[in-house]
Each structure stands twice: as C-alpha cells, then as structure tokens.
Design a protein around this nucleic acid. Structure first.
Lengths: 320, 320
DNA sequence: TTGTACGCGTTATCAT
DNA sequence: ATGATAACGCGTACAA
C-alpha cells in the first residue's frame, strides 16, 4: 500500500510532481520523470482509486447487477460485458441487489448495467443521471438516462411459428413463461399473431402455464397427456420447459418428434444435448453490446432508441 | 448525491453530529438524533463509500476474483459466497483479473476470495496482509494471511476406485486432465494408489491424455477404441471428458455400460443428463465456506489449516 | 451534547 | 520545472 507521498519522499520531489509524472503531464523534467517512474516500478505503486475519484468525482468503474444464479448463460453475458469494458479501460464489478444499491448511489461508479428484476424502476430512476447512466436488459424503462437493451423475441418467434406452419403443422400447443415478463409476453404474442395471420385457430385449452423452469414444463406436459388428443407440435417459451415437457412425454411413452414435435427458446446447452429445435440468443454479444451502449451514454454519443438484439432459429431433430 | 454536509446544514447541526448519528454513537441528544435521521430519510442520504474508507481504512467489501467463464458451476460458488457475506453484513464485488488487482491494492476491500489461476501467488503474497486476508480456492499457498480452500479429491477418488474394484472390475483405463492442475494430480494419484493397494496393475498404455474438455475426452476414447482390447472401466478425471468419451464409444458402436463402464468427476448437469456415475462436489457450499473462512480471518478467529471440502460419490447407470 | 480541526490519497491551481 | 496548498466526503480525537 505504497502511496504517492512515499514515492515523493523517496524520489526527493513533491507529491505534485509525482502526480504530474503519473498522469503524463509535460511540465516535468526528463530526468525527474525517469527517476520517479523507476521508483514507482520498484515499489509497485498503483494509484489509490478512492483518493483519485474522491477528488475528481469521476470513475472508470461500471456496476453489473444480477441476482438469478440459476441461469448459466449469465456467465456469457458477464463475459461480453467484461470484454468490452476492459477493451475500453473500464473496470467491472458484478454484484447482487443489496450491494449494487450501495455502489450505485455514491459516485463510486460511472454507470450500471442492470439485469436484476428485483431492482425496481423507481430506484433506477432515482439514481440514473447524466453522470450515472444505466442500461437495463430485458426490460423497458422510459427515462432519459436509462437505455433498454432487449432481445428481439417477437420477430424470431414469428419466424419459428411460420416455419412450423409451412411444414404443415396446424394443431399447436403452447407452454408459457412467467406472465409478467417481457420475454413471455412478446413470445406468446408473436405465437398468437402468426397463427391468426395464417387463419389457424388456437384454443385457450391448448395453453399451459409455466414459469420457465424445467419442472413447470414437466407438469404442463403431464397435464397435456391427459387430454384426449395431443397437439401436433408443442411450442415452449424456453428450453428448460421444453426439456421438462420431453421428459414427461417420454414417461407417457410418446416419442418426440414422431408423436409430437417440441420447440424451445434460448439455445441453452441442455437444448443441444436433447437436440431441441430452438432459438439461439447471442448472450455474449448482448453483454458486449449492452456495455457498448453504456459507454456511449457515458461519452454522450448514444442515441435514445431501444437496442434490440436479434436472435436466430436453430433447427434440430425435436421437430418432425 | 446529497452529502453529510448538506444534511448537517439542513438539520442545523455540525457534520460530526450527523456522523455520530449515522454511526449510532450515543453522544447525541434524542431529539437531535431523530431530526437528523428524519432528514437523512427524506433526502435518501447514503454515506459516500470512498470518503468513508479513505478515512477509516476499513471496509466491509469483499472481492471475489475469477476469470473462467466456461464453467457454469462458478455461478453456484458465487451464490454461496454471496449468501454468506450478505448474511454477515458484507458487500460482495465480483471481478476478473485486471479489475481485481485494482480493488485488491487499495484499502477499498477488506479481503478477497481468489479462484483465478491468472492471479499469481507472487501478487497474492504482495497484497495479503493482516488487514487484507485472502482465501484461495483450488490452490495451496503458504502464507500467514492466505488460506486455502480445496476440494478433497483424493479420498473420494479412492472411494470411487475401491468401489469399482469391489464390484469386480480389474482392467482400468484412465483419462487425465491438465497435468499441472492440483485436481488432476490428486485424482490420478488416488487412482494409482488404490489400484496398487489392491495389487492391480495399471499399464501406462491405458492412460490417455486430456485437458478437461469434452473434445479431449472424445479424442482419447477414439484412440482407445483402436486398441485390440477395451478396458472394463474407463475412469475420467472430469465429467466433460466422460461425456466426450461416451460419445466416441457410441460412434464406434460400443454401448455403455454393457461393453465398457465410464465414470466422471464433478457432477455437472451434463453428467446428470447422460446418467454418468460421478463425484458430486458441493459448489454452493464451497463458496459459502470460503466466505466463512475469510470472514473468520478478518475477525481474527481463523485457524491456519487448509480447509478441505469433501465430495460424495453419485452412482448412476454408466457403470455396470 | 455539540463543534472544530485534521487527515486519508489524489488532483488542480497557483506561486515560485 | 517544481512545490505548496486547498479541496473532495467522511470519521474521529479533542476541545468547548
């Protein structure tokens, strides 16, 4: 924990000279500069972040806030964020809800990327600021200093359903996710709209409730098997539920895709293992782009539009 | 960004009185205290972290440092750490190598948990301190202020191999991991020792190189299928390689476990999906206990021993 | 019970 | 080219 003072003493100069050397200012003699740099090197001097930003009121630290430890793709998002930020000279700290609030309120950080549902819009609006812009993922917030980065669910779900229709499917089942989530709403809306556009009716009885967990997919499909007639294809709002559904169907001696086709959403690793037709969401890129948007806000070069991440279909053999 | 000064002015008291109120000291009149708290509440006052720790030299922020975004069980470790720390009033920040170094050098944080191989022992030794203890995971460092928390690979691998012997297996194959890693060394040593103890010979030709990736397991098993005689059981240093091996064996029309048994290590979710007999490592608990050890070091109540996390065998149907 | 003054590590301003 | 000093927000010893 060697500080600027000690360096100054050792070099026989004043602290301001050391500061000038460190910050690459030109008002320092060559000889002095070299001596100081030499000593910094030897002592492993690193500027103290808090002294620095206490004085300057600025920081290069960005907060990423999340709280759901169940979804492994969060690591990919973090990696994307981390890569962009480190390429651009920012430090990233990742925290969960309560700690995040600490770090978001002082001028400790220069911005935040928020993925935590528990972080409510009201709080975000109260801390967002020209000096502290925020990027929210998977949520839309109307605020000049908060930018939304969301996955383009609607378009790709339309594409998925249309492709199924083109393959000849007419009788659809659907397992939904948590109804309050934007992901659920957009995916289900796209599903309904595409059927309607093709004049295919969708009975409400073919809708099954789920909450994005494998268990809920399992339960939903078990209920489905009790009906007298299986749909031709079961569209699930995410992969976990699709896996649960496939397990339940197999237990009831139905085979996928011979007796019923199944689709998921997310392209999680488990979807690959089970060979589920799904939608691939570029998680790493989402994180990278969210970080990019945030940095642009900090630099004042961002536009106000919602940033939409596009996703791609991935055909596998869970569809006949 | 309201500060202690403004609160003081609004309450008509001095800054030190406000400070005393906030820190719960008793030398403040009841009436004054209530008025100050009232105003803090109204203004949403939050103490500035930098001013605070710049002055006091103490913080209850803990750094967790990692860099491998491929292993999804890292999220479980983080959750374990997060849970223990928040139960005990600490804030957690998670960062990768370069940022971590920043936060570990100032007195910004009160301790660190390190899981990042890129964070070398030399650096750790240079920052570890009575005021800044460190817990390292999966590594052994000899330093008074650095404590190791490692998985007890040896014992459980002995148990696994002994169980296989007890089931009648005599002819063993082994796919190893990265040879420089502690995990590899301990697991392989246990494997060899247990065979020797039972007077079972192990031919070096039955050892296959791997690097903990699925691909390396796939390649290793492909080479294995070219030999004129398969071992009865293939012990793999982790699950990923076991999965790769199983895929390769299936491609060569061998069935598991009928033609050859396979075991893994880690109990990753993919091992569950493939029904692989493996060793379950309590990741969440590892994180929780690492955090606990660190907090005890901070409080000066820790002992110096290496902390070993015990793991348990998990039988599934990849073994005959 | 309350206030004043100082110092934490840094940078910026101004003087030398 | 270099140095002295104030200021950032806070906590604390000590004075009142």
């Amino acid at each position: 924990m060697v500080g600027i003072k000690e360096i100054a003493k050792m070099a026989g100069v004043s602290v301001s000279t050391v500061s000038n050397v460190i910050n690459g200012r030109k008002n320092v003699g060559k000889e002095t500069r070299e001596r100081v740099l030499q000593i910094c090197e030897e002592m492993g001097y690193q500027p103290n972040l808090m002294g620095k930003s206490l004085k300057s009121g600025k920081t290069n630290t960005i907060v990423f806030n999340f709280s759901d430890f169940e979804r492994s793709f969060y690591l990919k998002i973090i990696k994307g964020i981390n890569d962009y930020l480190s390429e651009n000279g920012f430090d990233l700290i990742v925290c969960t809800t309560s700690s995040s609030k600490n770090f978001m309120r002082n001028n400790f950080a220069g911005g935040a990327i928020v993925l935590d549902k528990k972080m409510d819009n009201e709080f975000l609006a109260s801390v967002a600021d020209e000096q502290f812009p925020i990027v929210v993922m998977d949520r839309i917030v109307d605020n000049d200093y908060i930018k939304s980065v969301i996955v383009e669910n609607y378009t790709v779900m339309c594409e998925l359903v249309q492709s199924l229709i083109d393959k000849g499917f007419r009788d659809f089942g659907y397992i939904g996710g948590i109804e309050s989530s934007l992901d659920h709403q957009e995916r289900f809306q796209a599903f309904k709209d595409t059927l309607e556009k093709n004049n295919i009716s969708f009975q409400r009885t073919n809708y099954y409730f789920g909450d994005f967990t494998e268990e809920s997919g399992f339960r939903a499909a078990n209920i489905l098997t009790l009906s007298n007639k299986l749909p031709e294809v079961l569209v699930c709002a995410n992969d976990n539920m699709a896996v649960g559904a496939i397990k339940a169907l197999k237990e009831s001696n139905y085979s996928v895709p011979e007796d019923i086709s199944v689709t998921g959403f997310d392209d999680s690793s488990i979807a690959e293992t089970y060979g589920i037709t799904t939608v691939s969401i570029p998680r790493y890129e989402s994180g990278y782009l969210a970080a990019k948007e945030l940095v642009e806000m900090i630099r004042g070069t961002a536009n106000k539009d919602i940033f939409k991440i596009s996703a791609k279909m991935k055909w596998r053999n869970s569809v006949k």
